[in-house]
């Protein structure tokens, strides 16, 4: 049971580890946190499995990061979806805008599924006014940033979010990309889009307080070597049995996904799930 963390900031952050998700169990817990927090804010509809799963999370290039407290488990999460023939989640509303970046031959990735356990700070705590919440959020961004710089060739980060969070993303100096739209994947809530060029943030590192946090030592790929790799059983369990994500995918989408896992037998992964009990158990 989470209690309020009243310690000073260093004491608050000391027992928290910021890293990439290493196991499917962590992936599910992080996803469940997103589901819970998004449901509270009406960003998603309730469902029986308590998860917010999509085809993008089945991609091996998608990375999920967590803030995990020694005592209280996963208290924050953020994900990054690299562009691919499947596109990006925000293409649903901002494809034209993201295409403008693609036409410049920029490698794009979307920051998505940011969630902090709201029991930590209460409902009225605004991120930019509260040191613990601010640093927890920025440290999550940092571990994602480190991965991006150490393990990918991504040039440009994009994000779409509810306009009420604009102050935070403006603080991080994301530039306008797309105007106010209704975003179906966020339960038809309003949304705006922003983008950030990685090299430009590196140039501004000395002048911006948050960027100084992001651009310390050159990140090593070593901490990310344990990145969770989904097995065929994981893909079936999460994206067929738990939620019919793969079964709802188009043939083109499935073909691309299968090409990402050339040794996996997708006909077995996609076998219809029979929820009825096995005869020998009755």
């Amino acid at each position: 049971m989470l209690g309020r963390l009243y310690e000073t900031v260093p004491s608050f952050l000391r027992p928290v580890e910021f890293r990439i998700v290493r196991t499917v169990a962590e992936l599910k817990t992080a996803n469940h946190l997103v589901y819970q927090e998004y449901l509270k804010r009406n960003y998603c509809k309730a469902n029986a499995v308590g998860l917010k799963l999509s085809l993008y999370q089945a991609l091996p290039t998608t990375a999920t990061f967590i803030a995990t407290h020694r005592r209280d488990g996963i208290i924050g999460t953020i994900s990054m979806v690299e562009d691919s023939p499947l596109g990006l989640p925000m293409d649903e509303a901002y494809k034209n805008e993201v295409d403008m970046l693609r036409r410049q031959n920029l490698r794009v990735a979307e920051v998505t599924m940011l969630a902090l356990n709201s029991q930590l700070f209460g409902e009225r705590v605004f991120t930019l006014f509260h040191a613990k919440k601010l640093l927890l959020t920025l440290r999550l961004f940092k571990v994602m940033f480190d991965y991006l710089r150490a393990c990918t060739k991504v040039d440009e980060l994009v994000a779409c979010f509810n306009p009420k969070h604009q102050v935070l993303y403006d603080f991080l100096q994301l530039k306008p990309l797309g105007g106010l739209k209704t975003y179906t994947s966020a339960n038809s809530n309003p949304s705006i889009a922003r983008h950030l060029n990685i090299r430009e943030t590196e140039r501004q590192a000395k002048a911006h307080a948050a960027y100084r946090l992001f651009y310390g030592a050159k990140p090593s790929p070593k901490p990310f070597e344990g990145k969770c790799a989904l097995t065929p059983e994981d893909l079936r369990a999460l994206f067929v049995v738990t939620a019919p994500v793969l079964t709802a995918a188009s043939p083109t989408e499935l073909n691309y996904l299968a090409s990402c896992y050339p040794t996996y037998r997708f006909n077995q992964i996609l076998q219809p799930h029979d929820p009825s009990p096995s005869p020998h158990l009755s």
Binding site: V9, L134, Q166, V167, A209, R212, L213
Partner: peptide, 23 residues
């Protein structure tokens, strides 16, 4: 107005000062 520029500027100032203090 949620996009009040004065409010945003004050928020950014506070956040910057918090980061200076803790980082």
């Amino acid at each position: 107005n949620s996009d009040d520029e004065r409010f945003a500027r004050y928020c950014h100032f506070i956040a910057t000062e918090l980061l200076k203090r803790y980082l």
